[in-house]
Design a protein around this nucleic acid. Sequence first.
DNA 1: AAAACCGCCTGTCGGC
DNA 2: TGCCGACAGGCGGTTT
Length: 276
Amino acid sequence: MPELPEVETVRRSLLPVVLDKTITKVTVFYERILQGVSVGDFKAILLNNGFLDLNRRGKYLLFTLEGDWVLVAHLRMTGRLIYVSNQEISRAKHTSVDFSFADNSALRFEDVRKFATINLLPFSRLWEISGLHTLGVEPLSPEFLPQFFGEMLKGSSAKIKSWLLDQKRIAGLGNIYTDESLFLAGIHPERPANSLTIQEANLLHGAIVQVLKDAIANQGTTLRDYRTGYGREGSFQNKLLVYGKKQEGCPRCGTDLEHKKVAGRTSHFCPRCQKE
DNA sequence: AAAACCGCCTGTCGGC
DNA sequence: TGCCGACAGGCGGTTT
């Protein structure tokens, strides 16, 4: 599912092709994708407008528009943003919105499960998107230092797995990269956050940064739905160590991997390398 | 205050 | 072959 590396890959792939193009047509196939804006207003604001910039915060994509507007997209589970150079290319079955550009190219927002969302609002009202303004630290930013991470962990007795998934603490981690990070650091997903030693906190910090960077370098993880902005699959699924490896042995010690629900999510770990 | 749970959605898969 | 329930998990809202 799209987590930080996938969303960042979409951003980087779309950046060279969607900026500074005039939007000539907007078609909304699934109205409920729009949050807090009517279809009429949505179209009126976008028509003859254009994307000036494209940024990411956590798992959110922020398209800057002319006239102080910003379009905020969240892919949730199965959302895709796909650029096509020619509008004649047939649309996917589950296309929610189609943005057509003056040069005959188009950007399509597809979403099988229809959880994805789009907000369109003035920059001054960005704070109204609660999930966006409460986001925690960007794990690939300079502020995310080992010592800061260690201090954060001290304040909570929550299970480390659910602690890492909480976007208000660290922005952008989902089920795949939390499991991979915890494995790399040798930490059991049910350990209380405040029980980690300084050494473990440092290890986990390094693991998070490493796995996110490595996943971005590999254009993200395509297990089923995720695609880059060009509709291509990522390749980090070939480098996963524990996520989805229910029937396999630990890549480090060979012990059968385990999986169980932690915080409502299936968690994959090695019972020998990640002691409770 | 924090953690657990539910609803939102559709496609896929295993069991019968 | 086809039906059915379980499952996939991000996040907002509600309950515990």
